[in-house]
Design a protein around this nucleic acid. Sequence first.
RNA 1: GCCGGGGUGGCGGAAUGGUAGACGCGGCGGACUCAAAAUCCGCUGGGCGCAAGCUCGUGUGGGUUCGAGUCCCACUCCCGGUACCA
Length: 925
Amino acid sequence: MGEGATLPGFARRTMASYDFREIEERWQRAWEAQEMYRVPNPGDPGFDSTKPKMYILDMFPYPSGAGLHVGHPLGYIGTDIFSRYHRMRGANVLHPMGFDSFGLPAEQYAIETGVHPRLTTESNIANYTRQLKAFGFSYDWDRQLETTDPEYYRWTQWIFLRLFDSWFDVEQQRARPIAQLVEELEYGLRSADGVMWQNVPEPERREYLDSQRLAYIDEVPVNWCPALGTVLANEEVTVDGRSERGNHPVYQRPLRQWMLRITSYADRLIDELEMVEWPESVKTMQRNWIGRSEGATLIFDIEGHDPMRVFTTRPDTVFGATYMVMAPEHPLVDEITLSAWPDGTKPSWTLGIDTPRDAVAAYRLVASRKTDLERQIEDREKTGVFTGSFALNPLTGEDVPIFIADYVLMGYGTGAIMAVPGQDERDWEFADAFDLPIVRTVEPPSDFDGDAYTGTGPAINSGFLDGLSIPDAKVRIIQWLEANGAGKGTVTYKLRDWLFSRQRYWGEPIPILHGPNGELLAVPDDELPLRLPEVDDYRPHASDDENADPTPLLARASDDWKHVEIDGVPYTRELNTMPQWAGSCWYYLRYLDPHNSDLLVAPEAEQYWMGEHGIDLYVGGVEHAVLHLLYARFWHKVLNDLGHVGTKEPFGKLFNQGYILADAYQDARGVYVPVEDVVETQESFSYKGEEVTRTYGKMGKSLKNGVSPDDIFDEFGVDSLRLYEMFMGPLDTSRPWSTKDIVGVHRFLQRLWRNFIDEDTGDVLVSDTPSEGELQVLLHRTIEAVSKDMESLHFNTAIARFFELNNALVGLDRVPADIADIFPRLLAPMAPHICEELWHRMEKEGSVVTAPWPVCDKSLIAQNTATMVVQVNGKVRDRIDVPIAITEDEAVALALASERVQAHMRGAQPRRVIARLPNVVSLVV
RNA sequence: GCCGGGGUGGCGGAAUGGUAGACGCGGCGGACUCAAAAUCCGCUGGGCGCAAGCUCGUGUGGGUUCGAGUCCCACUCCCGGUACCA
């Protein structure tokens, strides 16, 4: 870097000034050469089994072309400090890093430029690695992994085949190998949907088994995104019905796709959250997403047709079910729709159309054209049409009309409801619009003047349920339904099975072969990895036509790759790829044993590092609450069921770091402009001469407001940046970036340097004698406070303690020996480079990285005096220094003797005295 | 609408029911300097007061308590998630 002239702040440079760039780069090279952060596995040379283990993990990044900005490493700095702290505390610390490198951006870039995604990915990873190393992070780089590495995705495919080879045993609530299902079927311990296995002919046997697998193909309504040329999982679609990546419109349509049976694990995914130490908000988000609700399925007979099944959480209200609704797509609709309106049909029920058949067809057409977004915009006004048919309410014995309406969704419950307008706001609105009867079955309070009443109260108009509370009535009616064959207690979930196929290129090929008769054949384990074939065009078969069929990109692979002959039978390869999430579902396991070519992970390594509760600290953004974190838990549970891992949950403790926010600028059209090219003028901002408006948001590519760490390194150094990001606030809150504020922590480091080093001579300014008195007390208080803050990740307050200790050293000729020994060790996890440099200049033994964490001398911080506050009528009137062991009598006497106190007592005697010694004496007059 | 989380100086933020505003940024004043930067010292929530000091003050309104930023009730605003989920 240049001389002081370009950096006015540091013009006065001498040989012995704080040359942070030189120091930081030199120590980073030294640490790498010494393999300082390498941690051996059990059985490896140098492994010390007497040390406790700590597995401290970051959510690995997608290596984007834009490189890191200063917002990315916020969590990484936190885990690095925590890792360094635990190393000094004597733990075996596993702290790895890798890259989640399959995914859309590299492929989009390939589409634009023709550059193979592998090349883009490689250069991005190289850049990310350089940037991460420049932060001085203490990763064990020997364990680095990339999800795009065939030696990695070999095991991703292997896990997929375990899912394919397993089924979920509902009684045991766990996955088991499908071979065991076949055995039990053959021994007659089970039947195939009620049919004895001997009586099932071969093609049906295969179809039955395929339908039981955890990875299966099914035709389901899926989210189809024409702009991306692929289908997406529910979790990848936003509230607005758009793709999470790219914000493109998404359409619902039925398609045959690979699915993973995550719904089998719904209960365990909820219940086993009890086992982990996670932010309550993330647990709640997962519970809400799984959406377990308990209720009942009721059977309503329809004369001359199959009965209608409905799910409700309020079976106690069935006496108030005055009409029925099916989703427009419900399969029973065609069957029950009449060809003529029955007598008594109200005109408002018919859409003004001559026959039910035409009316239903017209309504369905309109409903199918509405997107989810349009449904919202229309403010949920209730629409629908009568089918002409009636169902029998089994409790009231009355015939009630059956409608179709788009407020009932095919995707939830049974796709049909019993409508109880008295207790449901939506049903009330519909009943109101269609002039349907309303019967209250729960008595509202006397002052209730609303429409539907959803609160608690005794049952009314409900025959044998009258007078019962809602919970009692539910129990009673379910007993009745089960006794009379009219229904049963049921649990439903919002969670859908995980749509696992993508029609894109840059992902793991699904290792399945399709036979001539539709049979599915797994690629044998010993033929993995099934490598991603080359194609000459990465453009998806994108289309603006929402009805265009999705075509997998691997259809462009060579015929050699696509067609395989086994024993004379021609097979074709599965052409879909896996979603982005596949690789991140298990990467934390591969770090444990990254070079194992025989096993996903050796059992000894897995047992040691995962221990009883899995990963000791997992830090990442909250945006993965229902994506990665849910998917990974699901895979982990399957691997646990099949005996490949020892814990039920992978992530014992989760922590969500906040985001770094920054100003952003938009031009007149609302387009974001690069923040580095915006010029501040008098009271306004301009970009290329055009006025722009300032906004504010999460730092990143989309707002074009990223700040590169490289620039900060040059101007302030790595240690300053690390300290600054930690000092901005608690790790779990978002905070605004302000480059000019870095100067505060930078001054701290400059001051620290000058306290230890004579800038003119380079002499080390350390005394032979230790500190005494208040300074010694301050030192030990600092040890105590910083140690506590380290455990709880409260790095901002720890740094404030460092400032105080450092400021106390200013003005001393020399740093007392004990402080010189302890201070660099306390600070080393946060600012490792300057501490290592001071450590060596003082000629201390070894590296500060492996030095033991200082211990606080409690006898020194146990003070013998304290400041006692005297309150009169609750207001602080005086502060008196008192011995710590002061008695109540002495304290009260002292308080009453105070002139200030007396002034506020106005000669009166206290009516009441409360003493919390030695801190407070409170007098009440 | 429902479910989480939050509201403290000009700004970022500290405060086991017991001294509100630690620490930092910014600001003001001073020392050093020909000058500036850097560095060092002091001050810095509002109001009243020459001062000692008094008084108000943690989104709003109530409550519990000797004492409330902290606990309880109601409201309000902001952030995140989710939504015709029966």
